[in-house]
Computed example of a mutant assay.
Amino acid sequence: MERRKTHMSLRDKALAVRENAYAPYSNFKVGAALTTEAGETYVGCNVENVAYPEGTCAEAGAIAAMIASGESRLTEVYVVADAPLPVSPCGGCRQKLIEFGAGDVVVTMATVDGVEQKMTLSELMPGAFTEEHLENT
């Protein structure tokens, strides 16, 4: 009997990794999954710390996994949390995402119940600070 690999969607992967989030203080678990130009998928979940500013966002974890694997260009992002409305990436993660993705990259923000909102990186981060700002340095 041949076993087939089950294709998991970005949503499925984000939901699955969300379960691994370390969120004992806020109990607000977030999962993120991104796809790269090479077609690979990387995931991340939020990791809290008792010193709140020292935590790590799910999107940052997925980006770190992508970079650690030798890739640097993302083409799609999916973020999911258990909230009444889709949760957008924080400002810091928006800046991180724009570093590795073009303005037309679609970011899907979702609830665990399936409510989704899609925006491009340019819509999420108008006026983003980019390498073009450093051309005279």
Rank of each mutant, 00 (worst) to 15 (best):
E131D: 13
E37G: 07
Q117S: 11
M1K: 13
A58F: 02
E71F: 12
R73Y: 08
V50D: 10
Y25F: 15
V43K: 07
P89C: 11
M125N: 15
R4T: 10
H7F: 10
S122I: 02
H7R: 14
P86D: 10
E76H: 04
P89T: 01
E116Q: 05
N27K: 12
S122N: 15
G127I: 04
V106W: 00
N46F: 09
C90Y: 05
V17T: 10
L74G: 11
N49A: 08
L85N: 04
N136P: 01
L124P: 02
T6I: 15
V80K: 08
V17C: 04
V79G: 03
G61Y: 00
V80I: 13
G61R: 03
G114H: 09
G55Y: 06
E19D: 11
A16Y: 07
T36C: 05
L34M: 15
V43E: 07
A110W: 04
M119G: 01
G92H: 07
T6K: 10
C93M: 08
A23H: 00
V105S: 03
V87K: 00
A68F: 01
I98M: 08
E40T: 06
V107T: 07
R94P: 08
F100G: 04
C90R: 01
C45R: 09
F28N: 11
A81R: 01
A38M: 08
K118I: 04
L134T: 12
E19H: 03
P84G: 02
T137H: 11
P89F: 05
T137Q: 14
E37F: 02
I98N: 02
N27C: 13
E37C: 01
T108P: 07
S122K: 13
G103T: 03
T137V: 15
L97N: 03
S26M: 11
G127F: 10
E123W: 02
Y52H: 11
R73N: 05
T130K: 12
N49T: 05
A68H: 04
E19I: 01
C57L: 07
A128W: 07
T6W: 05
P53V: 00
A51Y: 10
R94W: 01
T6M: 14
Q95Y: 05
K29F: 12
S72A: 12
M125P: 00
A33C: 12
L97R: 03
M119Q: 14
E76R: 15
A14C: 14
M125L: 15
M125T: 10
H133P: 04
D113M: 15
R4D: 09
T137P: 02
F129I: 13
N27M: 14
V87F: 00
A68M: 04
E40F: 12
G114W: 06
T75S: 08
T6S: 08
C45N: 11
Y52V: 14
M109E: 10
N46P: 05
F100S: 11
A23R: 01
R3Q: 14
V79Q: 03
L85F: 09
D82N: 13
N136C: 07
E116D: 06
D82C: 05
V107Y: 01
L15Q: 06
S122Y: 06
P126M: 15
G114F: 09
E54P: 00
R3C: 14
P89R: 06
E48K: 09
A65F: 02
A32G: 07
Y52N: 05
E54D: 14
M119R: 13
E54M: 15
A110R: 09
E19W: 02
L34K: 05
S9V: 10
T137C: 15
